[in-house]
Computed example of a mutant assay.
Amino acid sequence: MTKLALGAHPFLLGFDQLERLVERTAKSGNDSYPPFNIEQASDHAFRITLAVAGFAEEDLSITVEDRQLIVRGRQSDDQSDRIFLHRGIASRQFQKAFVLADGVDVAGAKTENGLLHIDLKRSVPDTIVQTIEINKS
């Protein structure tokens, strides 16, 4: 049986980037740290919440690169004078990526009680009806 590429289907003209998007999403991995929630706030708004206890605002960065929302966390290691008898709280760096659909933009971000909230909004495009004239030859 021959594998049919998604972008090669005759009814999906111009969707070849969708296949690359699926591959990129699959490569982002299943790393579960830090844990996160995705909520639908309204018909056109979403919120991603990451548990970032122990990270200060300056330890976190949020960027959008090529329709991919990337959240990075890196704690400064200024604890050289501390001696731990037990260390059970994770203090590792992380990178979490979310692929954004066209028309979805970051509306804002804030930290609250050890949680990082990233608000997303989807702009609703205007419906445009276009009539194509048929030229006579």
Rank of each mutant, 00 (worst) to 15 (best):
53 A>V: 09
53 A>P: 03
53 A>R: 11
53 A>D: 14
54 G>D: 09
54 G>C: 14
54 G>R: 11
55 F>K: 08
55 F>C: 01
56 A>S: 13
57 E>T: 12
57 E>Q: 07
57 E>D: 14
58 E>V: 11
58 E>N: 09
58 E>S: 13
59 D>S: 03
60 L>M: 06
60 L>F: 11
62 I>H: 00
63 T>H: 02
63 T>V: 12
63 T>Y: 03
64 V>W: 01
64 V>I: 10
64 V>D: 00
65 E>P: 05
65 E>D: 14
65 E>R: 15
66 D>T: 10
66 D>W: 08
66 D>Y: 13
67 R>G: 06
67 R>W: 04
67 R>M: 09
67 R>D: 12
68 Q>A: 04
69 L>M: 06
70 I>E: 01
71 V>C: 01
71 V>H: 05
73 G>R: 02
73 G>A: 08
73 G>M: 10
73 G>C: 03
74 R>M: 12
75 Q>T: 09
75 Q>P: 07
76 S>P: 08
76 S>N: 08
77 D>Q: 14
77 D>N: 15
78 D>T: 13
78 D>Q: 10
79 Q>N: 15
79 Q>W: 15
79 Q>F: 13
79 Q>L: 14
80 S>V: 12
80 S>N: 13
82 R>W: 15
82 R>P: 03
82 R>S: 10
83 I>T: 08
83 I>M: 11
83 I>C: 06
83 I>S: 08
84 F>K: 06
84 F>D: 07
85 L>R: 02
85 L>A: 10
85 L>Y: 01
85 L>N: 09
86 H>N: 13
87 R>W: 08
88 G>Q: 07
88 G>A: 05
88 G>R: 04
88 G>L: 09
88 G>F: 09
89 I>T: 11
90 A>M: 10
91 S>D: 12
91 S>G: 11
91 S>N: 11
92 R>T: 11
92 R>C: 05
92 R>G: 11
92 R>N: 03
92 R>F: 04
93 Q>S: 14
93 Q>I: 05
94 F>K: 00
94 F>Q: 00
94 F>R: 01
94 F>L: 01
95 Q>W: 04
95 Q>L: 04
96 K>E: 02
96 K>A: 05
96 K>C: 01
97 A>R: 04
97 A>C: 09
97 A>D: 00
97 A>Q: 07
97 A>L: 01
98 F>K: 01
99 V>Y: 01
99 V>E: 06
99 V>D: 01
99 V>P: 00
100 L>H: 07
100 L>V: 09
101 A>Y: 06
101 A>W: 01
101 A>D: 13
101 A>K: 02
101 A>V: 00
102 D>H: 08
102 D>T: 07
102 D>N: 15
102 D>M: 05
102 D>A: 08
103 G>D: 00
105 D>P: 01
105 D>H: 12
105 D>M: 07
105 D>K: 11
106 V>G: 00
107 A>G: 06
107 A>N: 00
107 A>F: 03
108 G>F: 07
108 G>T: 02
109 A>R: 13
109 A>N: 08
109 A>G: 05
109 A>P: 05
109 A>I: 08
109 A>K: 08
110 K>L: 10
111 T>V: 10
111 T>P: 02
111 T>E: 03
112 E>F: 10
112 E>A: 10
112 E>G: 02
112 E>C: 09
113 N>R: 15
115 L>P: 03
115 L>E: 13
116 L>I: 10
116 L>N: 00
116 L>H: 06
116 L>S: 02
